[in-house]
Design a protein around this nucleic acid. Structure first.
Length: 555
RNA sequence: GGCCCAAUGGAGAAGCGGUUUAACUCAUUGCCCUCUCAAGGCAACAUUCACGGGUUCGAAUCCCGUUUGGGUCACCA
């Protein structure tokens, strides 16, 4: 009679190592008490998802706050869905958001004593553990074909019983070792399944850092742990990797709660202590049918982190927003700290909401404006350059014409108590500031003739603009300059302040606001612009005169 | 459908049996300030915490049921 050991030897003759050897190869980490080892384990199947950024941010934070270790492990066992190069991209994007692992897969290299950190390179490790399970009758080769599987499922669905490969339905679990040997030697394709000893009637108590304690049915599925392509499945790889990489807290999305019993049974069978678990709520969005659904990369721009990068959002803004979802007390904290040093905030799992939040772009915009308004002109220049170099050639060339001039523009009402907050991203900056540039102003006027208030005829506009031009003094302070404009307005029949005009509209042509609007349109082509005084200071007298003249002669 | 999780305004939420006529933030609306806008200031916006029942002198808070929403049931992670 063929023994379990012989089957194990038949399948993995090349495996000589034992679990004890692995335990020695990956010794317990020497870390201070309370230090957490966390990991972010993405699959290289595309660009970074906003939900993944959320998860990795929390993993990073938990490790950092506790003086522990945050590492990245590449879960590339699904070779069909793998996208070449996406692992590197993922790491680059994490870096842009301030998430830098100190260990593991770093994109271009791997660092650390617990590797390899790429699952496809860990085959020898998985095999040792699977061989052990095989030897001890805790796993078996399964020769079930897809057609057989479909058949089992169909029967189960018809009979309205729990679908899956378990108990009496796990037909290949009852094969004798002699039969197994025969089929293996014959070359029949097979996978290796875990032999569950659980029963779903039994409940197990689980503890989750976010959800607290709850009960869940024991696992009784004979899940696949080793695929026919020679790679492990997620469930098995998670247990093996997090054990040997000595992870203390597994932080992952809520969708994993349902498979927790599988993982726990695996840990128990292997006599390993399970890590702590934190299952994070998923970020949602209202779908077309009016119901909540998971943010989808296919349907929602904001699901891909690259969207925020391409649009020129400061990465801090997204991280700050994500922190408000992560911890309900963060918002109050960051207001108290004037939107600065968010890394000093102490994260805690019990301040996390259990329900998936709806992604709120408006709030991202809010944080973005706050953050940008607090930057110095130098920081703004550097950020704008970094963004435009990659995503906005027109803007990049514009800034590069004269960086000092660009900073002067961006510095209008910036470094003061209540700075202007009109920029939320760099993606539309070109449009917003182009009028400051002579040639772009001219081009704009040529393509879109200036639109003045219809209330005033051309002669009035000409009169106002020429008077302003003739009396334009930019060497005086703001108040004097404004008073000067009021006086000119008054002399031409415009009320010096809005109240006087409102009280007696018949007595005036308009108010000083109308005068300012004519000037603003003439100089900036827009109805709205930053403070006119500073705009004129930036443009300089000569250019203002030139624009006034050109507008007057073209009216 | 089974199992698990959840349920406070348009959104994020505080709240942990009685100082709750429900904090705070975003959004929205109005007013003020103002050369426009962005800001800033001041207001308004849940008579009530999905619904029903119970426990209690007292419930958003505890219990039960219902409903609704989400997750999950692969040789994907």
């Amino acid at each position: 009679m063929v023994t379990d050991k012989e089957i194990a030897e038949l399948i993995f003759p090349e495996v000589k190592e034992s679990i004890e050897d692995l335990e020695k190869r990956f010794p317990l980490r020497n870390l201070p008490n309370g230090a957490e080892v966390t990991r972010f384990a993405p699959s290289p199947t595309g660009f970074l998802h906003t939900g993944s950024l959320f998860t990795s941010m929390i993993c990073h934070k938990v490790a950092k706050d506790s003086g522990g270790i945050f590492y990245v492990r590449l879960e590339d066992t699904d070779t069909k869905r793998e996208i070449q190069g996406s692992g590197e991209t993922l790491l680059k994007q994490l870096h842009l958001f301030g998430i830098d692992p100190s260990e593991g897969y770093l994109g271009d290299k791997q660092i650390g004593e617990y590797g390899p950190y790429i699952q496809s390179e860990r085959a020898d490790i998985y095999k040792v553990v699977i061989k052990y399970l095989l030897e001890n009758g805790k796993a078996y080769p399964c020769f079930c074909s897809q057609a057989e599987l479909d058949d089992i499922r169909a029967k189960q669905e018809k009979a309205k019983i729990i679908p899956g490969y378990y108990g009496p339905f796990a037909k290949y679990r009852y094969l004798t070792n002699d039969e197994r040997k025969e089929r293996i030697l014959k070359g029949d394709p097979y996978v290796i399944r875990f032999k569950s000893s659980g029963n779903h009637i039994h409940k197990i108590k689980v503890t989750d850092l976010v959800h607290g304690n709850f009960e869940i049915a024991e696992n009784d599925m004979d899940i696949v742990i080793y695929k026919s392509d020679g790679l492990p499945t997620y469930h098995f790889a998670h247990v093996v990797d997090d054990h040997f990489m000595r992870t203390t807290t597994v932080i992952r999305g809520e969708e994993w709660i349902a498979s927790l019993p599988i993982h726990l049974e695996l840990f128990k069978t292997l006599n390993w202590e399970a890590p702590k678990y934190a299952h994070l709520p998923v970020i949602m969005k209202i779908g077309e049918n009016g119901n909540k659904r998971k943010l989808s990369k296919r349907l929602d721009n904001e699901a891909a982190v690259s969207y925020f990068l391409q649009d020129g959002y400061p990465t801090e803004a997204l991280v700050m927003y994500l922190m408000t979802i992560a911890n309900s007390n963060f918002e109050e904290w960051i207001f108290e700290h004037h939107f600065e040093h968010m890394e000093e905030f102490k994260f805690s799992f019990d301040k996390m909401s259990l329900e998936g939040a709806l992604f709120d772009m408006g709030k991202v915009n809010f944080f973005s404006k706050e953050i940008l308004s607090k930057k110095t002109k130098y920081e703004i220049r550097d950020m704008a350059l970094a963004f435009s170099k990659e995503y906005d050639e027109k803007l990049y060339n514009l800034i590069k014409r004269d960086e000092d001039y660009f900073m002067e523009i961006m510095n209008i009402e910036r470094e003061k108590e209540n700075p202007r907050k009109d920029y939320e991203k760099f993606g539309n900056l070109y449009e917003a500031i182009s009028f400051f540039y002579k040639d772009l102003y001219e081009q704009s006027v040529k393509e879109n003739p200036l639109v003045f208030n219809e209330k005033f005829d051309k002669e009035t506009i000409k009169e106002v603009l020429s008077n302003i031009r003739d009396n334009l003094k930019l060497d005086q302070d703001e108040q004097s300059w404004f008073n000067n404009m009021k006086e000119i307005g008054s002399s031409l029949g415009f009320a010096a302040d809005r109240k006087a005009f409102k009280a007696n509209p018949e007595a005036f042509k308009g108010s000083v606001s109308d005068v300012a609007e004519m000037v603003r349109i003439a100089l900036t082509t827009k109805r709205n612009s930053p403070n006119l005084y500073y705009v004129m200071q930036t443009l300089k007298k000569e250019e203002c005169d030139r624009r006034f003249n050109s507008v007057i002669s073209n009216l």
